[in-house]
Design a protein around this nucleic acid. Structure first.
Lengths: 251, 251
DNA sequence: CGTCCATTTGACCAAGCTCAACCGCCGTGG
DNA sequence: CCACGGCGGTTGAGCTTGGTCAAATGGACG
């Protein structure tokens, strides 16, 4: 059996999953078949509005996205950043209204996955069900890490943790050793992700620069002393891989 | 269609899942078969240590548990509370080391679920795979809510949100209308869950009492103005139910 | 060239933390 | 049966981190 779609249009989801576990042709086909049209978004565009009705998920094909909520008091909390290959909007699985907004951070492309099609995929492809369950579990841990960061760390550690996390995630797709990247986020975004104000994010970045932890030029951030930052924050890279040994063999 | 196991020994997991969706006998059987011996824990006992090796999950049968991490700086972050019917230790699915500690808050009972058995269950019971995936998605949203609470709310709102959440969760199993409960948590625990110190938790509780939001006697907490607190915090009850309409029909 | 938005900086403020002491309850051992 | 010790809760005084408000700078783009 062969992939039904040419390599150029293969979805980022199957690429990501096959990074964890070689997929059979049938599995890859099913993943492709599940996804609808590509939809293009420009930076800042809102894909899903929190509280609004929703009956589909999305796969990020290109670009960065984030999910966020708006607490009653005002302000915003950014919950997670999403990268190519991520399955997003999963709250629509459990409810018919979105629990968070999905916004494009940079220009991006997504494909839509109707809930029912995901249900069928999970039912018909046992190994994929396990793999997707593992990915959901990993997402849980990512949120837990963020929670620990915001709940118990000071501003510098929070920012350092986030930068290390972005770095780790970029390495998954970049392959080689990366120690710098273009950050498509404003300082307001960073603050909303870290539970800080943009003013304090600014001061914190400058202090990190002052202390020789990072250097900046424009949007580009370079992490100068990664080992030091890891020790300083207790950062654990969760992106490198996930266990698949417990999955049953191919059906 | 009948359940194969007598009600007395039926696991809390199948009871919880069948609350969302009536299970077939085969599904209920598979859930029971997956679980090992019951294990009894006393309040404060640690079931799983963060960082330690782990190759199984657990189902809470009785009592409250929590998962927590220890940031480098010291202190502790309680990530979630777990109640009967919850599948816990799910980080073991994605990695072979625990990302958080699991501790019994009150005396409790758990059953063990080997990873491989969960893998088989997901592969062989498509509808359960979908349902468990939905539960994992719901857990994600619960963590997101907590993140928003800690990231963007003040002490009173954080505490109020937690109390409302406990109330909502207790109602799932209690059935009737509950407006008070015995809190098995110390103020230190509350602080670790909310990203506050125990001292400030104390002051915050007393202020809530002063303002007529709650009343306390010993461990018992009564929520006096639930509607007011809901409006004040923007609390959304995620426990009431989850959508199952998208699941395929019985195999 | 002007407008908009992100960044930067300063002065001041306050929510929550730290440190420290004290109280009250309960279980335990003499 | 009572003294002791420990833990959880309560309270006070002073401090720190990060927030608020406000204004200036600077780059990108029409």
């Amino acid at each position: 059996m062969m992939f039904s779609s040419p390599a150029g249009t293969q979805s980022a989801l199957s690429m990501r999953l096959s990074h964890y576990l070689p997929l059979t042709a049938a599995e890859a086909d099913a993943l492709e078949e599940m996804q609808g049209e590509r939809r293009r978004l420009i930076a800042g565009e809102v894909l899903v509005e929190a509280g609004g009705p929703i009956d589909a998920l999305f796969v990020v094909q290109q670009g960065w996205f984030h999910s966020s909520t708006r607490p009653v008091i005002g302000g915003r909390q950014i919950l997670r950043f999403h990268y190519p290959g991520d399955l997003i909007g999963t709250s629509s699985i459990a409810w018919s209204r979105a629990s968070a907004s999905l916004t494009a951070v940079s220009d991006g492309i997504v494909t839509e996955v109707p809930k029912a099609k995901l249900g069928r995929l999970l039912a018909e492809h046992g190994r994929l069900a396990g793999l997707l369950y593992a990915v959901a579990a990993a997402e849980n841990v990512a949120l837990s890490d963020r929670l620990t960061s915001i709940g118990r760390m000071n501003a510098i550690q929070r920012l350092a943790t986030l930068l290390l996390d972005i770095l780790a995630r970029l390495r998954v797709t970049a392959g080689g050793v990366v120690d710098s990247f273009d950050l498509p986020l404003t300082q307001t975004d960073l603050g909303d992700a870290l539970g800080l104000t943009k003013v304090h994010v600014n001061r914190t970045m400058r202090e990190m620069e002052m202390r020789g932890m990072i250097s900046r030029s424009g949007r580009r951030i370079r992490v100068l002393d990664e080992a030091g930052l890891v020790a300083f924050t207790g950062f654990v890279d969760r992106h490198a891989e996930i266990a698949t040994d417990w999955l049953p063999a191919c059906a």
